[in-house]
Amino acid sequence: MDIASSPRFFRRGPKPLTRLLACGALSLGLLVADAKLHLLDPARGALTALLYPMQWLVTAPPEGLRQLDTFLTTQATLTHENQALRTYQLELEARLQRQAALQRENAELRQTLNLRSQHGGNTLPAEIVYTSRDPFTFTLIIDKGSMDGVQAGLPVIDARGLIGQITRVQPLTAEVTLLIERNHPVPVMIQRNGLRAVMYGMGGQAEIRHIAAHADVQVGDMLVTSGIDGVYPAGLPVAKVAMVDRNGGSPFARIVCTPLAGVGENRTLLVLNETLNLPPRPEAAPAPKTKSRRKRGSDE
């Protein structure tokens, strides 16, 4: 139908106010019907289902970017926290090891103080500052020397027994030769029966030499210093018999001993500044003179 030939009512339509009132009444009716009768729920559900793909397409890129940012941030945070925890763990392990070393050093100092009280005032605590560079030489360097009253020949002990002997003295340091040094002699005595002998170092262990095969020596016997020759004070624990080998083809027994002291374990030692006042050795008797035989022809 031609719009120009239609009546003016249909060409102009209702007035704006009439349209507003009609739309308002329709909206109000729909609201009341939806609130009371729930007439629009099926339509709303169908419309939501139709619009969901479009909604997902619109919200997917920002949501993906947000999740990616969260993932990257979480990974960086976890990596940083993991590195911090590893560093903290290493610090705690180092502190724990240091604490264990301090506890052991404290225990050694306590033992040294108790040992010093047992031996009286003629003792001097010392600390090991160097060890021998030669792996086949068993010597130590302590932080006490001639300025502290250390002299060559003084014995050095720890809480368990004899360590060795001062062999060389400098003003500020001194050298200690351990009793396991090769061919280093220590006069000893078997505590069980009083049998005297000389123990020699073997470069790691010790042995008793030149003792008869029938001598009363047993595995487990305790060896202490005999005090003979004034080298060491009598009664210091030295070693324990670890092996006795009586070979039938030799007149001497082979006796291997294990030192009682912590030869390679301690850091704090005790120097016994005890001088044994022994009488001087008696002079050796002169050898008898042999009478020369006269020749028969000398009297003629």
Rank of each mutant, 00 (worst) to 15 (best):
A4F: 06
S6N: 06
F10K: 01
R12L: 09
G13H: 05
A22W: 11
L30S: 05
L31R: 11
K36D: 14
L39G: 07
L40I: 03
L47Y: 08
A60W: 06
Q67F: 11
L78Q: 15
H80N: 14
L92V: 03
Q99N: 14
L102H: 07
Q103C: 01
Q103N: 11
A107C: 01
R110A: 00
Q111T: 12
S117A: 02
Q118D: 09
T123I: 13
L124V: 00
A126R: 05
T131C: 13
S132R: 07
T139K: 13
L140D: 08
G145Q: 09
V150K: 08
R160W: 09
I163C: 09
E175M: 11
E175K: 13
T177E: 10
N183H: 09
P185F: 14
P187R: 04
V188E: 02
Q191L: 08
N193D: 07
G194T: 07
G201Y: 10
G203A: 07
G203H: 06
V217T: 00
V231E: 13
V231I: 15
A234Q: 10
A234N: 07
V238A: 03
A239D: 01
D245E: 07
D245C: 03
R246Y: 09
G249F: 07
P251C: 00
A253V: 07
R254L: 14
P259Y: 08
E265I: 06
V271D: 09
L276N: 00
N277C: 05
R296Y: 08
D299C: 08
